[in-house]
């Protein structure tokens, strides 16, 4: 474990908690893409199948359980408890256009052709594009609540910190996983224009609004 990976995990955890609290406190999921949250729940489910069979450390197990629990709780709040506030008219990104190609790619490009490895690879590829419905929704509504932008910033930073972690592990631990690195680069690049807007607008105290 290195500082970049720990910072990345904490940033990821912060994002997940911020989103859950935002929905719970405001009792509203306005501006939140339920499709992205379903994709994230799918990412954690397919990645943590070895949660009970492959013990790595208490930290690893606890964090996986928190991620899984919060992901499903968020989906529950969006589609069940606060369904009335779900903005389905703007959450129209065709998620199947992500899941099907990612599923095919996981079959073709992986480290080992075994069920667990293919599902892990699927989760890595899916995570890199899972935010697209959310970013698409913001581009459609033309704006985002400030708390939502903080959620997105923390979520985007988590994988950017992981990229630094992989550089660190490459030099100090001779560790190298091309699939995770390439997917992580794609994932972080997708946030770039949001990062630009976040830094130039939200951090200047303005509301994030896109030229509609």
């Amino acid at each position: 474990m290195n500082i970049f990976r720990l910072a990345g995990d904490l940033s990821h955890l912060a994002a997940i908690i911020v989103l859950l609290l935002k929905i719970w406190k405001t009792r509203s999921c306005a501006g939140i893409s339920g499709k992205s949250q379903i994709l994230f729940a799918l990412v954690f489910t397919t990645r943590y199948l070895d949660l009970f069979t492959n013990f790595i450390s208490p930290y690893n197990t606890v964090m996986k359980m928190i991620y899984l629990g919060c992901a499903y709780a968020t989906v529950y709040l969006i589609y069940m408890k606060f369904k009335a506030t779900y903005d389905g008219n703007h959450d129209t990104f065709r998620a199947e256009f992500l899941v099907v190609p990612v599923g095919g790619l996981a079959f073709l490009v992986n480290h080992e052709f075994s069920p667990l490895e293919i599902l892990w690879t699927f989760s890595i590829y899916l995570e890199s594009v899972a935010i697209l419905p959310q970013l698409f929704m913001i581009s459609k509504t033309g704006e985002a609540e400030t708390i939502t932008t903080h959620y997105l910033f923390a979520l985007g930073m988590y994988r950017a910190l992981y990229l630094i972690n992989w550089i660190w592990r490459y030099y100090f631990e001779n560790f190298f996983d091309l699939i995770a690195i390439v997917a992580g680069c794609v994932q972080t690049i997708l946030y770039c224009d949001f990062f630009y807007l976040y830094i130039t607008k939200v951090l200047q105290g303005k509301k994030l609004s896109l030229p509609a």
Binding site: R5, D9, H12, D50, N54, I56, N60, M63, K64, Y67, H111, E112, E117, W120, Y162, N165, Y170, N174, F175, F176, D177, L178, A180
Partner: peptide, 10 residues
């Protein structure tokens, strides 16, 4: 570098 599946990561 040897490729290692990054299973110790979240």
């Amino acid at each position: 570098e040897k490729e290692m599946p990054s299973k110790d990561e979240l």
